[in-house]
Amino acid sequence: MNKTLFIFPGQGSQKVGMGKDFYDNSSLAKEMVEKASERIHVDFTKLLFEENDQLEQTEYTQPAILLVSLIAHRLFTETCKTLPVSVLGHSLGEFSALSATGAMDYLDAVELVHQRGLLMKKACEGINAGMMALLGLDDARVEEITCKERELGKKVWAANYNGDGQIVIAGNKDDLSSLEPLFKEAGAKKAVLLPMSVASHCPLLSSAQANLEGYLEKWLKDDFAMPVISNVTAKAYQSKEEAKRLLSEQLISPVKYKQSILHVESSTDMFIEFGGSVLKGLNKRISQKPTHSIVDMKSLEEVLALF
């Protein structure tokens, strides 16, 4: 029997057309899209399947990715009853993972991450927030540079540990831009500002924490079918109280994705990614274990054939 670990992508995995094959070929997927549209008064068929500006706005990006991930997960589990060893997600994906454990209804999760996006957007209004991807520097060097620059008054923090030599930093956009020569001098192959207007996983989002905790209290259940690996600690949790604390901290703490995969690698034979393939790409740099992505009906059937 395969020991599996379920993984769920975060922001950056969105693209127009995602989930359309599920919607066109599954009455369950169609129903989930329609109910999500009613829940937050957003036409997900337009958001997901037609060219639009909203899909890149965090309050819409987040529910769109989560919904497609949970459709893929539901279609898989309708046929395959295997339970994963644990689940984990990248940033937003941790909320998809929580819902996959049974700790949150998928419609509550759709509304929760929509509100999370609005809270993040509000926290970053008027502070010129942004994020920058760095390639070719090790974690310690990035931490050393950002720490030194914070002592000089700049607002820059490590935000996502995606793999060896692949890290994202967050903060004030002008401060990030000003560090580009320093990173290049230190040996970075690339230092690229990302097209984002929020600064995720850093203290600039602290004003959003209390409200997010309120939503978590409202919609989370103390009913976890399996453990969730925390982005904050790279360790497992399995209760509502832990989830509330850790997901609030996740707003202002870096995503330890690389560390999480290394922590769970020995306990699994394979990873299954639901609704995207970005994590499959990251995992190739981190783990020797295979990752299979479910993004449409064909890939769903291919993964089901493994069981």
Rank of each mutant, 00 (worst) to 15 (best):
L107I: 06
V42H: 08
F6D: 13
I272G: 03
G165C: 05
M131G: 08
L75E: 13
L194H: 11
D21W: 00
S178R: 13
A133K: 04
N160S: 05
T79Y: 10
A97K: 07
V255W: 07
K20V: 12
G281Q: 09
L119W: 09
L246S: 13
S86T: 09
Y106E: 12
H73M: 14
Q259M: 05
K154M: 14
K189D: 03
M226F: 15
E144I: 08
A170I: 09
V168G: 14
G102C: 09
H41W: 04
P9W: 01
A191Q: 08
K298C: 09
Q11Y: 03
N162Y: 01
S287G: 01
Q238I: 03
M104A: 05
T291D: 04
V228E: 12
G102D: 03
S287Y: 01
K155D: 11
I169L: 03
Q250N: 15
A129V: 14
I71A: 07
L88N: 00
H114Y: 14
S197L: 01
D174P: 00
Q54S: 13
E241I: 12
R74P: 01
F307N: 15
K221I: 04
M18N: 04
Q11K: 00
R74I: 01
L137G: 08
F6Y: 15
G117R: 07
P9N: 01
P9M: 04
S69P: 12
L47M: 06
A109W: 15
